[in-house]
């Protein structure tokens, strides 16, 4: 009797708190994503925008560990018995990844661009075994500070380069 009551209480508690926390987290993610969406970012090694002069280059990392609630864990265990997409874990990964990237971006609001972003899982504990069900994500990248080459400066630069080329030839 007691294990059943504990189980149901945890289930209800997990459901209510999990839903509330998830909704709040998603609201905050969307809000911050809109605030930070103007920062050019890519996971490619090349400069996204040509730079006129680079004042500083910095390696930054943002990480997050998010745990799953009791209700979702139970649903996920049931899901893994029948197969198919485990939606309760999908929101977890989605939230963790977006949060990690946001924390990375929040560290360099003044940067001109953020390049070579990599996303990795950092394992704190072996969650697949008997550990706590959680997802640990690390996002890192290079922030570039300075002045972006505008269209006019780019034009003069190309004219200069062309004239330079004509001189050498």
């Amino acid at each position: 009797m007691l294990p059943l009551l504990t189980f149901l209480t945890l289930l209800l508690l997990g459901y209510l708190s999990g839903q509330w926390l998830e909704r709040r987290h998603y609201r905050s993610i969307i809000e911050r994503e809109q605030q930070l969406q103007n920062l050019p970012h890519s996971n490619s090694r090349d400069l996204l925008l040509p730079m006129q002069d680079i004042t500083r280059v910095e390696l930054l990392a943002g990480s997050v560990v998010i745990s799953i609630d009791y209700f979702k864990r139970v649903v996920a265990i049931l899901r893994s018995l029948v197969g198919g997409p485990v939606a309760s874990y999908e929101t977890l990964i989605d939230r963790a990844r977006r949060e990690a990237i946001l924390r990375l971006k929040q560290q360099c609001p003044d940067a001109c661009q953020l390049i070579n972003i990599r996303i990795e899982t950092s394992a704190i504990h072996n969650a697949a075994g008997n550990g706590i069900g959680s997802v640990e994500l690390l996002a890192y990248g290079t922030a570039i500070y300075g002045r972006v080459q505008t269209a006019t400066t780019a034009a003069t630069a190309s004219v200069l380069a062309a004239s330079l080329q004509s001189i050498t030839h």
Binding site: N43, R45, I68, S80, V86, Y89, I93, I119, A128, G129
Partner: peptide, 23 residues
């Protein structure tokens, strides 16, 4: 989409958790 990278995580036992990202 350029520079596509794959990565995995491990929360659930017996489930495949894959994520892929690129520019």
């Amino acid at each position: 989409i350029i520079n596509v990278r794959f990565s995995t995580s491990s929360i659930a036992a017996g489930a495949a958790e894959i994520y892929v990202y690129g520019t």
